[in-house]
Structures are given as structure tokens and as C-alpha cells.
Amino acid sequence: MTRAPFAMFAAGALVAAGWPSAGGAADWKSDPAASRLEFVATFEGSAVPGTFRTFDARLRLDPERPGEGTLDVTVRLASADMGIADVNREIAGVAWFDYAAFPQASFRSSGLRRVTDGRYVAPGALTIKGVSRPLELPFAFAGSPRSAVIEGELSLERGAFGIGTGEWASTGVVGPDVRVRFKVKLIPAE
């Protein structure tokens, strides 16, 4: 009778420590100061880089069981900075990101898929401006028990999310594709 509480305590301690041989899932969150979420649009045939300064990423990953993992990202759209004052004012409006109506964009994965060692794909849904589209988000994961980094790159079609509507929907001045790049430092979420 007196031993049972101790056994329960010991088991609990092992779980809390993320006992490696148990192969448990690790929960990670982004470290904002050391993370970047960037994009490159094209304007009159020239590349225009931009960045989202405020975003949050959460990763649950068990390399043994990636199917049970998740990658969730939330981006504050109004933190976009394209380095051109007039453009920054313009993209806030209804034709572009429409910050007032859609303050956040999000990606929610349903499971993860391992491609090779350290490379995964997160199948899920990307929601921007109220439009949800399926997306297979590729990323590389490298980590130690205390910190990790995920990085990846993908191309999005702005028209699919209604980014640049009306006369901006034509792609002569602002190109159709936007390259998105991220490098996120992760720290344990506990």
C-alpha cells in the first residue's frame, strides 16, 4: 500500500522529463526573437522581400510516430513589413490582406509525414483572408532536447487566397506567385 504512491510519482517524473527511451512526443514552441517568416513577391518583374514580424509556431513531434504529430502556425498579418512605406499602407487594405477583417492567418496540420531523416511534410490547411486551402508544408527538423530548428520553403499563389483583388488580380504588375521561407527556432513548450 505504501509503495504505490512512490511508483506513481516515479512514473510521473519520467514522463515530465521527456524520457528519451520512451520515444514520447516532444512539444515545441517558437522562440520569436530567433525566428523568421519571410516572403518574396514580385513587382514589375523585380523581387520584393517582406517579412511577418509576429507569428507563433507550435510543433508536436515524435520521430517514431510522426503521424501523431502536429504543426500549427498562427501569423499576425498586420505585422507584415515589405520595406516600402506606400506598399505597407496599401497591403493593409481590403484588396490585399484586409487586416481589419482578417487579423490572422493560420496553418493547421493533421499529422506529419516523414520524408527522410530530419525531413517532414505537414499536410494540413492554410487559411488566409478566410480562405482555407489544403497545403503540404515541407520542413526540415534538427534538434537537441533543449532547442530545435525547423526551416522550409514553399510557393503560394496569391490569387487562391484573394490577396490582390479587383484590378490587382491581374498579374502584370504584381506577380502571381509568392515564395515563402521560414526558419524557426523552437524551445520546449512546457
Binding site: 514589375e44 523585380s46 520595406g83 516600402i84
Partner: peptide, 13 residues
């Protein structure tokens, strides 16, 4: 100063 990328006649950056 406006930081606008521009190619002269879409050719010369």
C-alpha cells in the same frame, strides 16, 4: 529612398 525596386524598361536593374 522609397526603396522601390525598379528595372529601367524592365531590363537594367
Amino acid at each position: 529612398a522609397a526603396n522601390v525596386p525598379f528595372r529601367i524598361f524592365r531590363i537594367v536593374p
